[in-house]
């Protein structure tokens, strides 16, 4: 079983798209390949934008959950 190494935690609550994507794009450069960013956001737009960004940049969306208006997601840097 693989372990998840969360190297960075970001609070993106209150930020509107595309700023969460911009923040993730900047943060991914600061972590090691194989490691993970965990972020929380409130703009539901991230539920589309983050998976799309992962698909186009070759990173992996590890998980995405919504509870009580807060979206929590993990992005793994692949390369």
């Amino acid at each position: 079983m693989s372990t998840i190494n969360i190297e960075k935690v970001l609070d993106l609550k209150g930020l509107l798209c595309p700023i969460p994507v911009v923040k993730i794009s900047n943060a991914i450069k600061e972590i090691e390949p194989g490691n993970v960013i965990e972020a929380t956001a409130t703009d539901p737009g991230v539920m589309m934008d983050i998976p799309a960004w992962c698909a186009s940049t070759g990173n992996e969306l590890d998980s995405m959950e919504e509870a009580g208006g807060v979206i929590t997601f993990r992005v793994k840097r692949l390369k």
């Binding site: 595309p18 994507v21 794009s25 539920m47 589309m48 934008d49 998976p51 799309a52 960004w53 698909a55 186009s56 940049t57 995405m64």
Partner: peptide, 21 residues
């Protein structure tokens, strides 16, 4: 450029995206 590509990826991965949307 990333945001442009992400918009295109949204259509290319619509099966997965539509559920989120």
């Amino acid at each position: 450029n990333q945001l442009t590509d992400a918009a295109i990826a949204r259509e290319e991965n619509m099966e997965m995206m539509e559920g989120f949307f």
